[in-house]
Simulated scan of single mutants.
Amino acid sequence: MLFGMAKRARSATGWLRLGALLATSALLLSGCFGDAADPSASPPAETAAPRPVGASAAPVGIAFSPLRGTGAEWSAMQHPSIAVKIDDHELARPQIALNRTDLVFEELVEGGLTRYVAVWHSDVPDEVGPVRSIRPMDPDIISPLGGIVAYSGGQEQFVAMMQAAPVVNIVFDYDDTGLFTRADDRPGPHDVILAASEAVARHPELPPPPVQFAYGSADPLADPTFAATTTSAIAQTFSDERAPSWDWDAGTSTWLRSQEGLADTEASGERVRAVNVVTMRVGIDWSYGEVPRTVMVGSGEAWVSAAGRTAHGTWSKDAPDAPIVLTSDSGDALRLAPGNTWIELVPTTGSVSFAP
């Protein structure tokens, strides 16, 4: 059973001039929507006809992925994003297709463990998982994206909160359309797998997600005004049970992830990696008993790590359906490098450190 939520009329955002060369993507990104202090502002829709690539070639529209900032074919981006609650219990590892995400949010849940809100748009896999239940902060994380959310279930009050958000809900507990299966080679309840590309294909009426962050060049923090420091490693402590870390790998220009001191790999066997790591210090609301609720509406301390550098600043989010805005200590927009991003929602009771 699909829960058809009220669908927000979102215009496709972030598209730049058609026919732009991929080699100039960083310049276009910085000039077209990287300069705006508010990345939620939608760039004007492009109406010019695409220029032909060759004498006999059909016109191809070149745009940019709104959640990655990378070059993409315009027609390939005309579909919704899908946000999925992904398990991070030890028995749920390795997860499926984390390296194909556009965004991943890591959040504290009960028992000091963490779970992910993983978001796919530019590269939607056939299968993702393991899928787990919703939590009270998830509507605030997912609402700015629109599109689809998929999860296994959850407490009735949390499910109701998610259903009230402006997204289409797909719930394992109520699904009778075959979008979810249980994997024979995984222990329950860490075995629920979602047919992600099929879920997206069933909702062609939904628009692409809006741009969420400002993007710059491949080394977006090089400008001295950001006062970025060279960084070889990032350490984050959510609780006594969860302490993810990231090591800069210059060879691949990515951050390589570890959990509790061990290399973190996905089901493909690849090391989990990210082009950008955004670390946010967040408050925790304990009004739901043993279930912590990450406070997403407000502001706090933040760091952006990209291209082996880290810049300090603040994050702010004005409303549940508003995007996160990252601002440097100098007052400029903190830009990301084009590529995938992990957003680490580290409680203020935890810790963060950056090694030179």
Rank of each mutant, 00 (worst) to 15 (best):
M1C: 12
L2D: 07
K7V: 13
G14N: 02
L27T: 07
L28I: 10
L28A: 08
L29G: 11
G31A: 12
G31T: 08
C32N: 14
A37N: 11
A37W: 10
S40A: 13
S40Y: 06
P43W: 08
P44V: 10
P52D: 13
G54Y: 08
A55H: 13
S56D: 09
I62A: 13
P66Y: 02
G71F: 00
G71W: 00
M77K: 13
M77T: 11
K85I: 13
D88H: 14
A92C: 12
A97F: 14
V104C: 12
L108V: 07
E110Y: 11
E110V: 08
L113T: 13
T114I: 12
R115A: 00
A118R: 07
W120Y: 15
S122N: 13
S122I: 14
I134C: 14
P136G: 04
M137N: 13
M137I: 10
D138F: 12
D140F: 07
D140L: 03
I148A: 09
A150M: 04
G153C: 02
G154E: 05
G154R: 03
Q155A: 11
Q155N: 05
Q157N: 13
F158Q: 10
M161Y: 09
A164E: 06
A165M: 01
A165L: 08
P166D: 04
P166A: 02
V167F: 05
N169G: 09
Y174H: 06
D175L: 04
T181E: 07
A183T: 03
D184C: 03
P187N: 04
P189W: 09
L194R: 04
A201L: 03
P208I: 08
V211G: 03
F213N: 11
A214S: 12
G216K: 00
A222L: 07
A227Y: 01
A228M: 00
T230P: 04
A233Q: 15
P244D: 03
P244K: 00
W248M: 02
W248P: 00
L256A: 10
G261R: 02
L262I: 08
T265A: 14
E266P: 12
S268C: 14
V272I: 04
N276F: 10
V282A: 00
I284Q: 04
Y288F: 10
P292A: 05
T294M: 01
S299M: 09
G300F: 06
A302C: 08
H312Q: 10
G313N: 02
G313H: 01
T314R: 15
K317C: 03
A322Y: 06
I324K: 00
V325G: 05
G331W: 06
D332A: 05
L334G: 01
G339A: 01
L345H: 06
V346R: 04
T349E: 15
T349F: 11
S351L: 06
S351R: 11
A355I: 07
A355C: 09
